[in-house]
Design a protein around this nucleic acid. Structure first.
Lengths: 244, 244, 244, 244
DNA sequence: TATGAATGAGCTTTCATTCAT
DNA sequence: GATGAATGAAAGCTCATTCAT
């Protein structure tokens, strides 16, 4: 294939060979160090030391420092996109798709914090050409959510006037989890997924009762009747009267 | 005063003198260049050139590069915190406070994208001691929102089981605006404030499929008369009486 | 002026300042080391050590290694060209001009062996754009001699059928002196000038008595029958019996 | 044999084997790349790529980079010397020998420009011991011409006061052809041989008519203001028999 | 206040070379 | 005979920083 990078070539060679192992080690160390120090602040000497090489030897595995970053970010974005599409495959109901997307995004971001963090922080460090590739992938990923919101709004399930803005808002919110989440914290991944997904769904489905009570009648706006049966279980279990 | 930095001293000197003007120019150029290239990638030569100095001369205005970053970030955080507290002063109702906070945060982030971006991206570049200071300020800022949510939940206005998590989620969502917002876009600041605030309030107040109509919450707070016609159609089309 | 290099700027500053002295020292050391080791083989660390600096400090005085070479070679070529033109100024007789040119070229090459050597050897090391400039200067210099030969041939003083080829031949011959001449040798500069100039003039003015009878001089030796008609006209036109 | 290099050994092995072909390919690629980029600037990676090997594999064919250069230059010099001696064998007349030498040198330099160029340019890149060998070969080669000139002068055929200087001058002139000659140019090899040989012979045989009267040729030009009227302008006007 | 010369450390990258396979 | 992983040194160059003037 034409677009194969040095890294991919090294990986393709006799599996289990030292070269492939080294390539993987470099990739992992690269992710770790860029996550920790930032791309600019990470030196190739550091990286080499981390995998037990001389810095010059790294160039068997990538063209240059910039390409290492690009490889990491692009592969991550392709992985993210592919897995999201796989998770959504077969689901048609917008609300179910929204929950699936949110849950996927959250779990992915809690599991691969470093990759995700890098992909978000170091876009600025990519050269124009590389950035364009990555941004295009990100657009496609955002497009998944945007399309869900758009479809849900069309179906009358969501109250979303600006799907693009809502997409950015939701993704920012969900992605933010990788800024503070650490495994082993008080809340489990499942609990966090539920909390965040609730916020997303509430945001998408529109205003709740609390604001209704203190509404200014003049400007009041109403919701269309919606099927509450499509709601997620936990929430359905919540005593709704508690807030009335 | 003991804690005065070179920058502050330079600013304090004969106000209006060349020195103060230069100090301010350096600060602004610093923000601009760090925003554009990142702290690590910005060189002091660049910065000096931007303000028409030799790089060595910069050291009349700051201790070192790290301190320039610290000054910028800390001052920004103090400004952010101070202005948020000022905006919230006198408001007691949790929902009003939440709307105020959201609106303030959004407007601040749309107005000072560079500062905000830096404060979020370059924390990693701060030395431990400096980072601690900034993180503490950020905690205080987040504390404002957390306290609002906690109070609202106590009052039964908000459906927030985990105020801390919700705080992170909301702030991530709101802050995300500085990643894509550019002045002069299709949507005005007011419109964006309304959309985002709607999402926040909906998220905080919880699910309300069969429930009340939601006022134009922001207008009540933000004081500027706005044309409610900018509102998205779906909501406007909703039967207003449905939640009354 | 637009085309000023770092070197020239450093030289222009307060005369006698340390900067100007350093600039000159770097230039001289550069000539010396490139002469000695070749451009590629000379390291900037060597050069820096030669003038008592750190290698990074050299970059106050030139943009990069390549520009140092270019500066040296271009300045040399301009100097060579300028001095040649000055020497020839006012002389009109072709033979006198030829002798003047030869003498000038020889003396210049015996005096500035290093510069001359570099200018001849390191053209290959110049980047395309720089090489173009230098080659153009060299063409102009060669043009001086070519024009002399052309004029002399026109006047009937020289027997030169191919002025361009003769120009290359003569310049190669004269320039060659810098490959072996060392001051203090058995022969003085004046003696060498006389010997070389004699060869040049003899070559230009054509065959002497000893070879008067050579009709097909080469064929007699080289075994391949060749058409002597390829001979240049001037010689063919010469009255061969005149010297018998 | 003791003095055999890896290259020679590789060549000697099963003739026609792959190894010998590779050895030859490396040699040729080496000549090509050194000619093009210079010895220092040519990397062994380049060379290996040119012949379709990994750079490490080259070491089956030479000891190290330096030895590759030495092999090329020494073999070239031995070839040059051997062929010159062969060409001169049997010729006794100094003038004929001079013409033969010139013609041989020119043709050789027009045919093997790359080898010749390398041998002249890269002597500086040879380590001392190797350079000594090559310089000795060159001395022997120059000795051929010097001896011719010396003999001719003894015989009264040539007007050469300093055979050594004349040797350098002539060889420089002739060798210079490889700096600009390109096959397919306006002038054929034969024509160039004739032109150059003419210059050589004229130079060796001494003054032609135009300069017959040169007693102190240079002084006449250099020092005093000159009266071009005293000049023997028209060549035809001079009594040509003066030198008979 | 500002310059400009200089430092010294460190950067990414390339190189010739080695060697187990 | 050839590979490919790796070395270790060195290259050109940039950087934050210092300091005499």
């Amino acid at each position: 294939m034409a677009g194969r990078t040095k890294f991919q070539k090294a990986m393709a060679r006799t599996i289990g060979s030292n070269g492939a192992r080294t390539a993987e080690a470099i990739r992992q160390a690269g992710v770790k160090l860029i996550y920790k120090h930032g791309y600019e602040a990470m030196s190739l000497r550091q990286l080499a030391a981390e995998v037990g090489l001389q810095s010059g030897s790294l160039y068997k595995y990538f063209e240059n420092k910039q390409n290492l970053l690009f490889d990491i970010v692009r592969d991550h974005m392709e992985d993210l996109l592919g897995k999201a599409e796989a998770d959504l495959a077969g689901i048609t109901d917008p609300l179910a798709r929204l929950k699936t997307f949110s849950a996927f995004h959250l779990r992915y971001h809690m599991t691969r914090m470093a990759h995700v963090f890098i992909a978000n922080m170091e876009i600025r460090s990519l050269e124009d050409e590389h950035r364009a590739v990555v941004v295009a992938l990100r657009r496609r990923y955002e497009g998944l959510l945007e399309e869900i919101l758009r479809q849900g709004a069309e179906d009358g399930v969501f109250q979303v006037s600006e799907p693009k803005v809502a997409t950015y808002a939701i993704i920012s919110m969900l992605t933010g989890i990788c800024m503070w989440y650490r495994p082993g914290g008080r809340l489990s991944q499942d609990e966090l997924v539920e909390i965040y997904t609730g916020l997303v769904v509430d945001g998408a489905t529109g205003p709740g009762p609390a604001t209704a009570a203190r509404a200014k009648p003049l400007e009041a706006v109403a919701a269309q009747p919606r099927d509450s049966g499509t709601r997620a279980k936990p929430r359905a279990a919540r005593p709704k009267t508690a807030r009335a």
